[in-house]
């Protein structure tokens, strides 16, 4: 690969590992990096994943970013919103999402910032977060790792549940991976706390500590693996040939 590897490509490669070993489930990547990452998982280590065209149909190949000729989509099944709910209530799904806030318990917020009755910033509403997090595994992508996203104390409006309530989920709750612009994390630290797995190029342990509003377990300062040549080819030539991913970090 002649072009230099970008941060978005490193994040896509790292995020695609969320679906490793997950079997024949619905992969939902909401937002640019998670969506390309889900596609990369399907093209590399987990071809059994089911993915939608972003609307109502399951298609055999991941839908590339940007305009495409949809007549080339190989439609293999149907996934209306109603069926998405049926699917996720059954637990056969792994979503990667981008909350506005996340806390030390893994609780997430996409509803509102500030006082609930008259929010400083009204966001989307809880959407499907309560149902997603209590019914199936999820992973998280945060493009702006800071004390505003990784908040101290609890998130302002708990939309997705956290580890302190995992017993309520009939064994389904798990945040498998947290990928940010600084590194890769999971919640397998002591007592389900956030732990650093790897650092992206140029990022120090101190950067992570300074930008996280709660204690992060640091057991490693190893480097995030670079995308392989095959992964880069999949991202650059198939999943995002127009380079829309570059907009995430202004690359």
């Amino acid at each position: 690969m002649s072009e230099s590897i970008t941060l978005s490509e490193i994040c896509i490669s790292a995020s695609s590992k969320a679906w490793e070993g997950e079997g024949e489930i619905l992969a939902t990547g909401i937002g640019l990096i998670p969506r390309i990452a889900a596609g990369l998982a399907k093209l590399t280590h987990n071809p059994d994943l089911m993915m939608t065209d972003g609307e109502t149909y399951l298609i055999s190949q991941p839908a590339p970013m940007g305009k495409r000729d949809i007549s080339h989509d190989l439609v293999e099944g149907y996934m209306s919103y109603s069926r998405v709910f049926e699917n996720l209530w059954g637990g056969k799904r792994h979503a990667m999402v981008t909350p506005t806030q996340i806390d030390s318990f893994g609780q997430t917020n996409i509803s509102a910032i500030g006082d609930y009755n008259s929010p400083k910033v009204q966001l989307l509403g809880v959407r499907g977060f309560p149902g997603n997090f209590i019914n199936h595994k999820n992973s998280i992508f945060i493009p702006n790792h800071s004390v505003k996203t990784f908040v101290s104390g609890a998130v302002d409006m708990v939309s997705g549940m956290g580890y302190q309530n995992k017993d309520l989920s009939n064994g389904k709750f798990e945040i498998k991976l947290v990928v940010t612009n600084l590194g890769v994390f999971d919640f397998n630290g002591k007592d389900d706390s956030l732990q650093l797995l790897s650092l992206h190029p140029g990022v120090s342990v101190d950067d992570v500590i300074e930008n996280t509003g709660f204690d992060v377990i640091i057991n490693s300062d190893k480097a995030t693996p670079m995308p392989t040549d095959n992964e880069l080819a999949c991202i650059r030539e198939i999943l995002d040939p127009q380079g829309i991913r570059n907009s995430i970090f202004g690359e």
Binding site: F129, F133, I134, V158, M161, G162, N165, S169, N170
Partner: peptide
Amino acid sequence: TRVGLGTDVLTH
């Protein structure tokens, strides 16, 4: 349903 448990949907 289990949905809502552990979230502020129930608080509010």
